[in-house]
């Protein structure tokens, strides 16, 4: 005879606290952001530029040390329309999240697109960073509110297909 009131599950929350340090490459990137710059690193072997840099070229497995400043504008390589709410994101739904290949970089990175209706975002679209006021800058990605269209002509697919 089944006990209707039997305990069937228990809640066992886990909580851990960490003090992160970013490591050398990410630290330089974050300090660059605090100065309003996007700093990448170039692989000494294959010459690719990584933004944000992790200190290594994942293809060659060698340290990346050359610092390279890249532009705060670039090209949407791919994107998605987000229709589910998230605790960490305070935006009107739906919104667009995109991979953006900054001018001078070889890998795209993730950012939000605003100031553009979600159904008009497209691959190849040119976008630029919208920075917060300089007085609010710190060593964080949050210095960049989002990206918005520049109005430049779209980049043909052939020119960024190697960077998807």
């Amino acid at each position: 005879m089944a006990d209707e009131s039997a305990i069937q599950s228990i809640v066992t929350p886990v909580r851990m606290e960490y003090t992160f340090t970013p490591g050398a490459a990410s630290q330089r990137f974050l300090l660059g952001l605090a100065a309003g710059k996007l700093m990448g690193q170039r692989c000494p072997e294959c010459r690719k530029v990584y933004v944000p840099p992790r200190g290594a070229c994942p293809r060659c497995g060698v340290a990346t040390r050359d610092e390279v400043e890249v532009a705060d504008r670039g090209t949407v390589t791919t994107f998605c329309i987000v229709r589910v709410p998230s605790e960490n994101i305070d935006l009107e739904l739906p919104y667009t999240a995109a991979q953006i290949l900054l001018d001078g970089a070889d890998i795209p990175f993730f950012a939000l697109i605003q100031e553009c209706p979600w159904d008009q975002v497209r691959m190849g679209m040119r976008v630029e960073a919208v920075w917060r006021p300089e007085a609010e800058w710190g060593p964080t990605f949050e210095n960049i509110r989002h990206f918005r269209p520049t109005g430049e002509p779209d980049v043909p697919f052939e020119r960024f297909q190697q960077h998807l």
Partner: peptide, 15 residues
């Protein structure tokens, strides 16, 4: 090890 992340710590050792 505060100055290097995991990848930066590993690279010289693996190399």
């Amino acid at each position: 090890e505060r100055r290097r992340n995991e990848v930066e710590m590993l690279m010289p050792v693996i190399a």
